[in-house]
Design a protein around this nucleic acid. Structure first.
Lengths: 223, 223
DNA sequence: TTGCACTAATTAACCAGTTAGTTAGATTAT
DNA sequence: ATAATCTAACTAACTGGTTAATTAGTGCAA
């Protein structure tokens, strides 16, 4: 072997392998040996780039959530009217999760770790990623309500409901598959889910009709 | 001390302590020492009553989900009309989770463990608890649709959405608390959530009105 | 010839599971 | 009745396999 595998590549390989291992097994269940093997580097290299397992875990979380933030802010920064913007936001969020299916697992794992000083990462994550997104969505909802487009929803209930419908679908897919006897993660089924979520959200959020545009919503919810 | 602490009590204490420890830390993160300490018994007693850590974990899951099944089947077995029955079911499910807040964590943890032969419990749990409930709810939705009370929803999307809104709210509460700066788990807030979920569900499921009864739904969604 | 990228080998700690018992009380024998 | 025997319930102390983390280096490029 020898050195020089392009350091950035090694670092990235470690980060990616770690993301997978942490998502599948949680920080306690993750094995540093497994991460090193998957990344095809020596285990000691993990400690060369990252202080310890916990720090590596933190880096994985930052990488994941900063990707998400970038993605949804593209929608939130656009100058669409409220209805279209919230749909663009939900769509962007859904698509990001759908094409990075280890992230919902990472996210839920970290959420469950967050009670008391249990996780040293959660405060940073909230401040850097969750707060800014939540704030912007809150403002957006407020605007939509003020303009008579949205029902009077409380962001503190609306946002977790929306996140739940997206995140939970993917993280519960393996169980769902055993219940319903088909794979919920085929492109076909994922597209269905996307439509179901969008429809569910519109049904719960939009007022029947304020001026002209008949909402894009079709007949059925969830399907 | 000495022996005879009433064996049933010891077993129950172990099960309860284990449920807490597994919910908080997952099976990999849970410490058998911690379980024994919390249950105020010697660690070897865990192995006297349960073969090993994995078996104890399985017993915890069975205990939790059988409680849930009993509870929601009370609603599903009642002879209410579809609208009222689905609301009774959702309410029962919500109340069960709300008063056993370690269960949503146990549930999500087990869901994330379910890919490939990873969990030896999931097949049993699906067959014993999830399948029967899912089947009954599916029939109920079907009936409601046939009677023109419900929109044409797909149970494979409706059920996970419903579960998500309930389960995710509780398991994400510690993070949510940091985002919104208030405690989402006060009785007050939990009651709000219950109303929000019921309202969200009705909005997405019920057809405007089929005959007489104006749905109990009031103005706002989520709040 | 310095410092960056990297590794083989080792270490210390942790933790599930075991062992070798003890104790309380029920059951049987006398 | 009561001493002898048995068994379920329980414990203190230990063990060994696992695993995060370290060390003491090597090779290479500028």
């Amino acid at each position: 072997m020898g050195s020089r595998g392009q350091p950035e590549e090694s670092r990235a390989a470690i980060l990616q392998a770690a993301a997978k291992e942490f998502a599948e097994n949680g920080i306690a269940g993750a094995r540093t040996d497994a991460i090193a093997r998957e990344a095809r580097v020596n285990k000691a290299l993990l400690y060369y780039y990252f202080k310890d397992k916990e720090t590596l875990y933190g880096a994985v979380l930052d990488h994941a959530f900063s990707g998400m933030k970038t993605n949804v802010f593209r929608a939130l920064d656009s100058d669409l009217p409220p209805r279209e913007k919230i749909m663009a936001y939900v769509g962007a969020y859904f698509d990001f999760i759908a094409s990075n299916q280890i992230y919902p697992k990472l996210m839920q794992r970290e959420m469950m770790r967050a009670r008391e000083g249990n996780s040293i990462h959660i405060d940073r994550l909230v401040k850097t990623y969750f707060q800014p997104i939540y704030r912007r969505v809150g403002e957006l909802l407020h605007k939509g309500i003020a303009e008579g487009e949205f029902r009077k929803v409380d962001p503190a209930h609306f946002v977790p409901s929306m996140v739940a419908m997206i995140v939970f679908y993917f993280s519960s897919a393996p169980v769902m598959q055993r219940i319903v006897r088909f794979n919920p993660l085929t492109p076909q089924r994922i597209a269905e889910r996307r439509a179901a979520v969008m429809d569910f959200i519109s049904a719960a959020l939009f007022l029947p009709c304020s001026s002209a545009a008949p909402s894009s919503r079709k007949s059925g919810v969830h399907q």
